[in-house]
Design a protein around this nucleic acid. Structure first.
Lengths: 246, 246
DNA sequence: CGACCATTTGAGAGTATTCAATCCCCGTGG
DNA sequence: CCACGGGGATTGAATACTCTCAAATGGTCG
């Protein structure tokens, strides 16, 4: 754990500015947040179910996920998170965690105390609105995952997941040309989509054999974006990626 | 469509006060919102996918749901809504709807213009925070539904759904003694849980034969709450029903 | 090289779906 | 008052998709 250089929080400013433009004063206030930067190993919990956190985790590098474990040991993953995300932003208003957050890869996170965020959002309603909007997009993604689990075939669900990941990564400059690093295991994907790792493996094999994707050493390439999105009925509206007017 | 008597919005004030206490000034400001009360038939859309609404719908009476239709005609229901809910509150910050909202029963709704809500939340950050918190609970419920679809057996998923509905209805005084009116079809339940109506029917039959529930003429009774919640591993934490301190 | 984890493959079992057909309840109209 | 009509509920039989259990293969790091 080291003291934070102020620019570590730039990734948050960029994220918020992708939601709505910020005034200089607002930007300075965000830069003034006191944060603690912490390196993490893969598979470490950032927050646990039933915790009552006093800080939020901003991901600076690496991937994380939100998940819940059932008594039977089954795991359901709710979301994947990449740099710029604050997976536990909800703890600002819901005191008890109803799920856990953990890293999927080695990662760097910035811990931001709640009181700093509370002051920030109270002083700057536009920042509060931007955070709120971010949690609404989060919820929209949850809904789309529900569609995948409830009403799409396994193939469509996985393809849809890959499309979503591509657009989210592209939005923060971590992907282009329909190629990206996918540093998660097939079991992670299975737990996200409500399948078994065995079945995920078979679907991936099928997608490869049909020439739709290349996936090796954690790098995914979608060969024909148009065809791929048609296959899984991918409509990016729910990601609300277009810049929101002020 | 008739002009709104001010007290029609009381249901919203009660809802918000169940989240966080309000000052008199805040309460008066909410009462000052101009709203339009509209009676609806069952199965009518309140908002549609791709719409750009300029108002939100507060449910005064009846049930509604959020859903999305796939090109194949399959439907996924994301949530059920009861009096006091604003199912499309997200439209305040996300201009384009990524899903639809419709009534499930005859209903009364109050339409509240966005600009009124924007002014209200800008003037009263505590009200904004209460709304935000409400959308966070919404998202928590989405996550729990994901667990149901992804990692619970059909029986557990349905039982869990019934437990959740009971607590939500009880919280607004519409249920007690583990009995409540469930005015939705088996197909609605199926579309909510990602199953077929046929399978829902078989699971319900099984729950009845095991003496766990009584369900007739849209009235559900859970015989043994303790046993029932154990059966489906129901933990109400995710509903965040405890009163939040100011 | 060995340990460990992830991926891959096979075979058999189950759960849920599909496609119909029938039943039931309730409101409407004759 | 009762027949009719329509939506929802119920049931059956065959099918399909996914899971479970197991074993083998492959890759990476110390």
């Amino acid at each position: 754990m080291v003291s934070a250089p102020n620019h570590s929080i730039d990734v948050l400013i960029r994220k918020l500015e992708s939601i709505a433009p910020l005034f200089d004063e607002e930007r300075r206030a965000i830069e003034g947040l006191s944060v603690t930067v912490r390196p993490m190993k893969a598979g470490q919990d950032l927050v646990r179910d039933q915790d009552r956190p006093s800080q939020c985790c901003l991901i600076l590098e690496g991937w994380a996920c939100r998940y819940k474990l059932l008594k039977t040991g089954k795991r359901q993953i709710f979301s994947f998170h990449i740099p710029g995300d604050i997976p536990d932003l909800q703890s600002l208003h819901l005191s008890v965690m109803d799920h856990s957050v953990s890293t999927l890869t080695p990662a760097t996170v910035a811990l931001i105390p709640h009181h700093g965020l509370h002051e920030l959002t109270a002083r700057f309603p536009r920042i509060a609105a931007a955070f709120w909007r971010d949690t609404l997009v989060d919820a929209a993604i949850f809904r789309e995952w529900m569609v995948g689990m409830g009403r799409r075939s396994a193939t469509q669900a996985i393809a849809h997941q890959f499309c979503e990941m591509y657009l989210k990564l592209q939005a923060v400059g971590l992907a282009e040309d329909h190629i990206y690093k996918l540093p998660v295991t097939q079991s992670d994907i299975a737990d996200a989509l409500g399948m078994t790792n065995v079945h995920v493996n078979r679907v991936l094999k099928d997608l490869r054999e049909k020439g739709l994707i290349t996936l090796m050493r954690n790098t995914l390439q979608i060969h024909d974006w148009e065809e791929f999105t048609r296959l899984c009925e991918f409509d990016p509206t729910y990601l609300h990626l277009e810049q929101q007017a002020a």
